[in-house]
């Protein structure tokens, strides 16, 4: 095959993909602000995304906080800055690790499940059946997941922040010998509202991206089991990449100046 033709095909395919995703996102957002909405389905998705992700996000957060305390202590000990451990833990958790790790874990758990569920509905004609039953598939399938993603990720990240900081506290106080009161004071005194707010804004954006990529890849999946499998993989990979990319952009937006 002509090499240039191959490159052209890949580029055109990619651009087509971007265009289709943009239209999909625009359509989905426009349906989010137009009735009818399905509060019952939104509630179900909020439980799925929020409540059922708590164990995995909590575990990730507590061990990340613990490791962070341990690593920063051994690093800072080299230039006698051990007292900064609490500050580093709380800033890292609230600004970066909380939202990013929670986002990545939820992308693996929820993004994959959304793509698999909607993809299976696509290949078994269930989405066509929705249309014939006078139900808009965007409103019924996509909107509840997007709304739930945007609302629940910040709550999950808030919990992850608290658990992550607590993990750092456990290691700091019980392993590294910090005074409990001093550790807590350092944590609270150094923390500013913007640190938490920026993390929550990130979480909201990540929630949107995870739900969007899960729904988009599922909605356009083709073929049978293989197509659904590919959609699931694409949903997780693309959501993870977008989370890391948007994380940088939002950080730049909040803290560059």
């Amino acid at each position: 095959m002509n090499f240039l033709a191959l490159i052209g095909r890949v580029v055109l395919g990619f651009l087509g993909h971007i265009g289709r995703l943009t239209i999909f996102a625009g359509t989905a957002i426009s349906h989010c602000v137009r009735p009818p909405l399905y509060p019952r389905l939104i509630g179900q998705q909020m439980i799925d995304i929020g409540y059922y992700s708590l164990p995995v996000v909590g575990l990730t957060a507590i061990f990340s906080g613990m490791v962070l305390a341990l690593q920063s202590y051994t690093g800072f000990a080299r230039f006698s800055a051990e007292s900064a451990v609490a500050n580093v833990v709380v800033l890292s958790i609230t600004r970066e690790l909380g939202p990013v790790l929670a986002g990545l874990m939820v992308a693996g758990r929820i993004g994959a499940s959304m793509a698999a569920e909607i993809g299976t509905m696509r290949v078994t004609e269930q989405i066509d059946a929705l249309t014939t039953l006078s139900t808009n598939p965007f409103k019924y399938l996509v909107v509840p997941r997007l709304v739930a993603g945007v609302l629940m990720l910040p709550l999950l990240v808030l919990v992850a922040d608290i658990i992550g900081v607590f993990g750092g506290y456990l290691v700091g106080v019980y392993k590294l010998g910090f005074n409990a009161g001093v550790y807590i004071n350092s944590t609270v005194d150094f923390l500013e509202p913007l640190d938490v707010i920026s993390g929550l804004v990130k979480a909201s954006v990540f929630g949107f991206l995870i739900a969007l990529m899960g729904c988009y890849n599922g909605y356009y999946s083709k073929g049978g089991a293989q197509g659904v499998g590919a959609a699931t993989t694409n949903a997780v990979v693309s959501a993870s990449i977008l989370i890391l990319t948007s994380n940088y952009l939002i950080t730049e937006l909040f803290f560059a100046s």
């Binding site: 078994t124 269930q126 006078s134 139900t135």
Partner: peptide, 30 residues
């Protein structure tokens, strides 16, 4: 579309819903 009913080749039932809710889907949602 309210004038239409459709029986799909694979039946295309919603596997997340019980049978009665599948049958009543158009009535509840539509």
């Amino acid at each position: 579309n309210k004038k239409f009913g459709m029986l799909f080749q694979s039946a295309a039932l919603f596997d997340s819903l019980p049978v009665w809710e599948n049958v009543a889907f158009g009535l509840i949602q539509g």
